[in-house]
Design a protein around this nucleic acid. Sequence first.
DNA 1: TTTTATTTATTAACAGTGTTAAGTATATTT
DNA 2: AAATATACTTAACACTGTTAATAAATAAAA
Lengths: 212, 212
Amino acid sequence: MAISDRKIREKEDLKKRILEAAKALFLEKGFEATSMRNIAEKVEFSPTTLYLYYKDKNDIVFALHQEGFKLLAQQFSIVSNVEHPYERLKTMGRIYLKFAEENPDFYELMFVRQGPIIHVQKYNSDDWQEGSRTYNVLYETVIECQKEGYFKNLLPHSVSLIIWSTLHGMCTLHMHMRLDCVTFEDDYEIDPEKSRTDYIYETFISFIERLK
Amino acid sequence: MAISDRKIREKEDLKKRILEAAKALFLEKGFEATSMRNIAEKVEFSPTTLYLYYKDKNDIVFALHQEGFKLLAQQFSIVSNVEHPYERLKTMGRIYLKFAEENPDFYELMFVRQGPIIHVQKYNSDDWQEGSRTYNVLYETVIECQKEGYFKNLLPHSVSLIIWSTLHGMCTLHMHMRLDCVTFEDDYEIDPEKSRTDYIYETFISFIERLK
DNA sequence: TTTTATTTATTAACAGTGTTAAGTATATTT
DNA sequence: AAATATACTTAACACTGTTAATAAATAAAA
């Protein structure tokens, strides 16, 4: 059985190599500019071969979106060191914003593009595990905060939804260049050291302080 | 000079007809499924003729995005009846959410897609008028609220950015089907009459109450 | 009025996209 | 050795946005 084992291993190996190629192109040239033929060329197989390992492009896109969630989970893992739930929440927010800033293409795939969601609807019977798991981390933290007396008279789902929405809105408005028209100079003293992202982060903090 | 006037008029007429055809297809079949050839077929001209009236597809997309802003401004116009700035702000929020819910394709063009922004960068020297004008309506309202004592110790741009981000985040997470995985049932008693959008709106209101 | 110039629209083509049907080697099993 | 199964490729389909070259229609100049 060792030979057939090797065969299976080799098959999974190529599947991984395809994904690695896709990821490389994706990070290098962006999502829009990554085609099936590009990926095929990179792994040195014909384009049709990809369809023996992935059902369609959305299947690859979905796998890529999973990679993004792995990366985010990795960044999130350090928050377990933060004892106090409210401080942990603020740290999570900072990590989320940083992740979006540093991995805009991944973020787009994870939370904007419809490709991965279409794949979920088709093959995973509407069960978007990556999303619900990540949301749950936030939700549980909010509940812990409430046990400590924060967010009084608010439903935990409401609080979670508001926080996620605010962060997501800040990230995407920024990523999609919808904030370039907003000139903050009226308010803030123009500090050339500080980026727009810095101001966004500060705004988020002042917001969460208000919300408590 | 009357003849050349008529010529110009006819030219603008076809330009409008192209835009109308684009809008019709866009609203009927969605943005993704609207191609230059589709539009050309609808106006009964060859595809290349469109390029005599619009520089490229993004030019049409940009004009379409302007139509969206006109529609939003129209919906917003009724808020001038609301005297109290804080009440006006809440009404604006409701209108914004309703607009996004009822015109998801327009919303996508106005605040998500990069097509219109690329056009702005190319031909309008980075001046996204539609965006800054709409933002200013919010900003001015926030300032008026602060004059009445709301949002103490917060910069008006911060408040505006938070509100816009939260609304935008709610709209897009919902539109892009990233909230389908969140089961609110733990919190809310499942009222079949109420849609997810209703809950989102209630959440927004409870949020803005907190923020004040 | 005839000729030239300009505007308007078209055909054909380029280079690309995701995807599939059909065919070809290679390796495994009977 | 013959039949079957696996892995892969070639060729093609039906699209996409866009451009160069060309033809037809109109306006201006001779």
